[in-house]
């Protein structure tokens, strides 16, 4: 009788461990998927910005022919930015920095263009342009939001996989820490796009 209980106890213990291992592993997978999903959203909104640029450049060109060098800068920065993509499974700090650098170059080329545009009141009065401006502004807000959401998801994932005892499961199944977007001065808040 006693022996039976002991065996039952051992079986239960092993089952508890196995059950816990599976549950913890599944939770990590779920968090990992969450990070990948948020990353997809980040790339989405940056792509959305890139998609607006050809239209913007075409509109500006009609009014500001003399600014071709600024426009060329924007076009080049755009093509560089769209060529850098990051596989969500390899979200380490170097790949993320590369991504940020390319997008940051596009941001600064765009803001130089916006400064130049100040000199063209006709362009600013153009209906098509003001719609593009609204879309670009909304897209900058979306970028800020999705970066924040991504950071939140990555932080939740990182905290979970580094805590004992989940860290055992994470390291045995090869889950690695994800990188964050760095909060540059003011980047936690959406930049103001002014024309």
């Amino acid at each position: 009788m006693k022996k039976g209980l002991l065996i039952a106890g051992i079986v239960v213990f092993v089952l508890v461990i196995v059950g816990w291992y599976i549950r913890t592993g599944n939770k990590i997978v779920r968090l990992d998927e969450g990070v990948a999903e948020k990353w997809a959203q980040v790339e989405n909104v940056y792509q959305r910005r890139a998609d607006l640029i050809p239209n913007l450049v075409a509109t500006v060109k009609g009014y500001a022919e003399h600014e071709s060098s600024t426009l060329t800068d924007v076009i080049e920065a755009r093509s560089k930015a769209t060529s850098v993509t990051v596989d969500p499974d390899k979200l380490n700090s170097s790949s993320l920095r590369q991504f940020e650098e390319a997008q940051g170059n596009l941001s600064s080329a765009l803001s130089r263009l916006m400064v130049v545009i100040e000199r063209y009141p006709d362009l600013k009065a153009n209906q098509n342009f003001s719609e593009l401006q609204a879309q670009l502004e909304g897209t900058e807000n979306r970028i800020a939001v999705e970066r924040r959401n991504f950071n939140d998801a990555a932080r939740e994932y990182n905290t979970y996989i580094r805590q004992f005892p989940a860290s055992i499961v994470a390291s045995s199944r090869g889950f690695e820490k994800k990188a964050y977007f760095e909060a540059q001065a003011g980047s936690e808040k959406a930049p103001e796009v002014k024309f």
């Binding site: 209980l5 039952a8 239960v12 089952l15 059950g19 599976i22 549950r23 592993g25 599944n26």
Partner: peptide
């Protein structure tokens, strides 16, 4: 409802029985 949580439930059920019996 994943396999893990079903196993977990079954384990709890039998663990409970062992305690109950004791």
């Amino acid at each position: 409802v994943s396999v893990g949580s079903i196993i977990f439930f079954i384990v709890c059920f039998f663990l409970g029985y062992v305690l109950y019996a004791a």
